[in-house]
């Protein structure tokens, strides 16, 4: 029974990969278009996605290290909190962007989904990949700044790449669920926005996990984004290998959410068209 389920999921996953392989050119085009459309008409183009994280790092450093003088880790270097904060913001922002944009992906592209028989899941996947690309640019900026501020190379950093892909799968999985819901209940996107705002404050991005009172600690254990933020920080700031428990919980949650979202989306897809 369990074996069957696993096999079925593998088949689903295989089919999914095969379809994506056929559609890879379409996805590549969608991602390229998405990235270019964002900066179309601007003179420095994609360079904005480097400037944005750099400037936010600078302003975090100013606010938290000089104005508020926040210090809660043993590390007391200049901009330590800014790095800490940015390390948490990076996965969060990417995740938020994916879920928010996936929520309206079907309704925004109704004319495509209604009139062309293409694999509509490429919409969510290209949103995910686009966000992954900007996340990686942010990551590169973060690494450069880390090296400058600390003078050491966090050589464990490449481990973040597969993690960011897992995070993307988590986001897309959730995106599949909310966009399915949004087709039927158009209040979903609003609900998602509010939900993400609450989720953001419940995730240790602005504060470290250990300051949460013990009776609320469970919120950290059920929050995949808390795992993501901790793992990112551990790798980039402490240059350590992530603990296997957190890693496996995060992996399991991501894969599970993705498969669930994929299944729900596929099951409801025929009904979409009637509602658009």
């Amino acid at each position: 029974m369990v074996m069957n389920l696993v096999l079925a999921e593998q088949d689903v996953f295989k089919a999914w990969i095969r379809q994506r392989f056929i559609q890879r050119y379409l996805i590549a085009q969608m991602v390229a278009r998405e990235l270019r459309a964002r900066y179309v008409g601007s003179s420095i183009g994609l360079f904005w996605s480097v400037i944005h994280p750099l400037l936010s790092m600078a302003v975090f450093t100013y606010v938290f290290s000089y104005v508020l003088r926040v210090r809660f880790s043993e590390d007391t270097g200049v901009g330590s909190f800014a790095l800490y904060l940015f390390c948490g913001m990076l996965p969060w922002n990417s995740f938020r962007e994916i879920v928010e944009r996936c929520a309206t992906s079907i309704t925004d592209n109704a004319s495509l989904v209604k009139n062309l028989s293409f694999h509509s899941k490429t919409l969510q996947l290209s949103i995910g990949i686009t966000s992954l690309v900007t996340q990686w640019i942010g990551l590169a900026v973060l690494l450069v700044v880390t090296i400058i501020l600390r003078g050491s190379l966090p050589y464990m950093a490449p481990i973040v790449l597969p993690l960011s892909i897992l995070l993307m799968l988590f986001g897309i999985g959730l995106g599949f669920l909310v966009c399915t819901l949004h087709v039927f209940f158009r209040d979903t996107a609003q609900f998602v926005n509010v939900g993400l705002m609450i989720w953001f404050y419940l995730t240790p991005v602005f504060y470290p996990a250990h300051v949460i009172p013990p009776k609320f600690q469970f919120l950290i254990y059920i929050n995949p984004l808390a795992y993501a933020a901790n793992i990112y920080r551990h790798i980039v700031l402490n240059n350590g290998f992530p603990d296997l428990f957190g890693l496996s919980v995060f992996t399991g949650l991501s894969a599970g959410t993705f498969l669930l979202g994929y299944w729900v989306y596929s099951k409801n897809f025929p009904a979409f068209i009637d509602e658009l």
Binding site: A37, V40, L112, N115, L116
Partner: peptide, 13 residues
């Protein structure tokens, strides 16, 4: 199917 023309056309490109 030629149901709608210019689906997915983007004015900036």
């Amino acid at each position: 199917s030629l149901i709608e023309l210019g689906t997915g056309f983007h004015p900036e490109f």
